[in-house]
C-alpha cells in the first residue's frame, strides 16, 4: 500500500452563492460540498453514493475542475490541480476524463462518431499523423465492442446502450488514469445496464483505470466497486471497503439507505428502516450532525456537536471510517455495534 494514490481530495468545499435582494448581491450560500476528503488508489474503483442533492456530482465536477472550488485541495498523482492556471492544467486534464449519465444529450448530434472520438486525440496531440489517428479511433471502437465501420454514423443512429459505449470510448480516447462516471449507467434499461457494467469492469481490469463511480444505485455499486463513500448533505458520513460496508454499516444513514432498496425476492423478511421526512436544505444545513433531523437514534449530543470521520473497528476489513457519535457510546447502547447488514440486504 505504499504507492501514492492517483487522486487525493482534502477538505473539499464548494459553496454556490445565492443571488437576490435589491442590488443583486449575495444573500446566502448553497453548501453543496462542505469539507469532503477521500483518496483513490491506482486501478481502484471508489463509489460515491447518496441521494439527489447530497453533493456527489459536485464532487465529481470539482475533481474534473469544471469550476473553481471554494476551499480544500485536489491532488492528482502527487500534483495539486485545484489552483493551476488553465494553461498549466491542460496536460492534467487529459488524465481525468468523464462519462455522463444521459447518453442522449452528452454526444454532439452534429458530429459523426469518428469526429467525436478524434477530438480528444487531436486536442491533446496524441496522434502522430492522420493514419495513426484513424488507427486509434478504430482501436477505441474495438475496446468498447462496437463495429469499426460504425465510425461513419451519427449519434442518433445508435441505441442508448451503444451511445453510452461511444461516451466511454470518448473518455478513453485521451488515455486517462482516472474516469469520473457520473451516474453512467442510471439511465439505461436493466439488460443494457448489465452490458455497460460488465464493459466498465473489463476495461478497468485491462487498462488499470481508476474510477470515481458516482451512483445512487447501491446494488450496482456493491457489484462493481472496491470501496464506497456515502454522502449526505455535502459531507461524507462513511467510507469503507464494500464488503465491510454492506455487512455492517456504521452510520445510521447508510443503514437506512441499505434497508430502503427494494430487493427482488418476494416475501423476504427483512428489517426495514423508513426515514421520516426529506433531506434538509443545503442552504441552511442542520446544526451538529446533519443527519440528526432524520436519524432514528439521535440523542442530545448529535444536535450540537458535529461528529468527525473516525476509524471504527469491524470484523471484516480494515479502513472502515464513519462520522457518528454512537460509536463513542458503550456497545450496549450502540445499535450499530452489531453487524446486521445481512438482515438489511438479504436473508
Amino acid at each position: 500500500m505504499s504507492t501514492p494514490p492517483i487522486l487525493e481530495v482534502t477538505d473539499l468545499k464548494k459553496h454556490f452563492p445565492l443571488r437576490g435582494g435589491l442590488l443583486g448581491g449575495t444573500t446566502g450560500y448553497v453548501y453543496a460540498v462542505d469539507g469532503v476528503s477521500f483518496s483513490i488508489a491506482k486501478g481502484e474503483t471508489l463509489a460515491l453514493v447518496g441521494e439527489s442533492g447530497c453533493g456527489k456530482s459536485t464532487v465529481g465536477k470539482a475533481v474534473l475542475r469544471l469550476f473553481d472550488i471554494t476551499d480544500g485541495q485536489v491532488v492528482l498523482d502527487g500534483k495539486r490541480i485545484d489552483d493551476l492556471s488553465s494553461s498549466a492544467l491542460r496536460p492534467m486534464r487529459r488524465r481525468v476524463q468523464v462519462v455522463f449519465q444521459d447518453p442522449f444529450s452528452s454526444l454532439n448530434p452534429r458530429m459523426r462518431v469518428r469526429d467525436i472520438l478524434a477530438e480528444p486525440i487531436r486536442n491533446f496531440g496524441l496522434a502522430k499523423d492522420a493514419k495513426d489517428l484513424e488507427e486509434r479511433v478504430a482501436k477505441l471502437m474495438d475496446t468498447v465492442r462496437l463495429p469499426r465501420d460504425a465510425v461513419n454514423r451519427w449519434p442518433h443512429e445508435f441505441s442508448g446502450g451503444q451511445r453510452q459505449r461511444i461516451g466511454i470510448a470518448r473518455a478513453l480516447a485521451a488515455d486517462p488514469d482516472l474516469i469520473v462516471c457520473d451516474e453512467a449507467v442510471s439511465a439505461l434499461d436493466v439488460s443494457v445496464k448489465a452490458q455497460i457494467v460488465n464493459l466498465l469492469q473489463d476495461l478497468q481490469r485491462e487498462l488499470g483505470l481508476a474510477l470515481l463511480f458516482i451512483s445512487h444505485d447501491l446494488a450496482i455499486v456493491e457489484h462493481m466497486t472496491h470501496r464506497v463513500a456515502v454522502m449526505y448533505l455535502g459531507k461524507i458520513v462513511e467510507v469503507a471497503p464494500k464488503r465491510s460496508l454492506f455487512a455492517a454499516p456504521k452510520h445510521p444513514y447508510t443503514e437506512a439507505l441499505l434497508s430502503a432498496v427494494p430487493v427482488p425476492m418476494p416475501g423476504m423478511a427483512r428489517e426495514r428502516i423508513i426515514l421520516k421526512g426529506d433531506v434538509p436544505s443545503p442552504i441552511r444545513p442542520p446544526s451538529g450532525c446533519r443527519f440528526h433531523t432524520r436519524c432514528p437514534y439521535a440523542f442530545d449530543r448529535c444536535r450540537s456537536e458535529e461528529p468527525k470521520l473516525t476509524h471504527v473497528a469491524t470484523a471484516l476489513d480494515e479502513g472502515h471510517v464513519a462520522a457518528c457519535h454512537l460509536h463513542d457510546r458503550p456497545a450496549a447502547e450502540n445499535p450499530l455495534a452489531v453487524a446486521k447488514g445481512a438482515a438489511l440486504v438479504a436473508a
Binding site: S159, G161, V190, S191, K193, A194, Q195, V197, N198, Q201, L218, A219, I220, E222, H223, M224, K242, R243, F246, A247, L258, V261, V263, P264, G341, A342, V345, A346
Partner: peptide, 27 residues
C-alpha cells in the same frame, strides 16, 4: 430469466457471488 440474471443483487459481496452479470445480448 435474463432480466433477473442481469440485475446485481444487494448483498452480493457478502455471499461471494460477484461474477459477471448475465447480459441479454443485442437490442
Amino acid at each position: 430469466q435474463g432480466l433477473l440474471g442481469s440485475m446485481p443483487k444487494l448483498g452480493s459481496s457478502l455471499h461471494g457471488d460477484e461474477g459477471r452479470l448475465a447480459e441479454i445480448p443485442g437490442l
